[in-house]
Computed example of a mutant assay.
Amino acid sequence: MTKLLSCRYNMDTNRVEARFADGTTLAIDCIAVEDEYGHTPTQRAELDWLLYNKPLEYAQMVLRGEMGQYLSLGCEHGRLED
């Protein structure tokens, strides 16, 4: 694939829609990603945070196969405050 130019989260389809420099478009099924990587409430919250705040980074991690490693680092962007 060529360079990833843009992404946006489509709430109606629950997909991240990615556009590449060569004109290719790709839709990432967020339910499938959550089923694969969202084993805990904290991981699911982090996936949601990424979707809403950083869809480009979300798509890059999914496409590179880095989502599991990212979540294993214990990121807390989506953590609920007490």
Rank of each mutant, 00 (worst) to 15 (best):
R44Y: 02
D35W: 06
H77P: 05
Q69I: 07
A32N: 06
G23I: 03
P55N: 12
D48G: 10
L5Y: 01
S6M: 01
K3P: 00
L5N: 07
I28S: 11
T2Q: 10
T42H: 13
C30D: 10
Q43M: 09
A59P: 02
H39R: 11
G68T: 14
L5P: 00
L4Q: 03
L47W: 12
Y37H: 15
M61G: 01
A21P: 00
Q43W: 01
A45I: 06
A32Y: 02
C75R: 11
L80I: 13
D82N: 10
R64M: 08
S72W: 00
E57Q: 12
H39M: 03
D29I: 04
G38C: 09
T13M: 13
C30S: 11
R44L: 06
Y70H: 15
G74A: 07
V33P: 08
L56C: 05
L56N: 07
A59I: 03
E76A: 14
L50D: 07
R19P: 00
A21V: 06
L47H: 11
P41T: 09
F20H: 03
C7A: 15
V33Q: 11
A59Q: 02
L56P: 00
H77K: 15
D35P: 06
W49F: 15
L26K: 13
P55Q: 11
Q60M: 05
Y70I: 05
G65W: 01
D12F: 04
D82S: 10
R64P: 00
K3W: 00
A21F: 08
E17Y: 01
A59C: 03
L5D: 04
R8T: 08
D22A: 08
G78H: 09
E81R: 14
L5A: 00
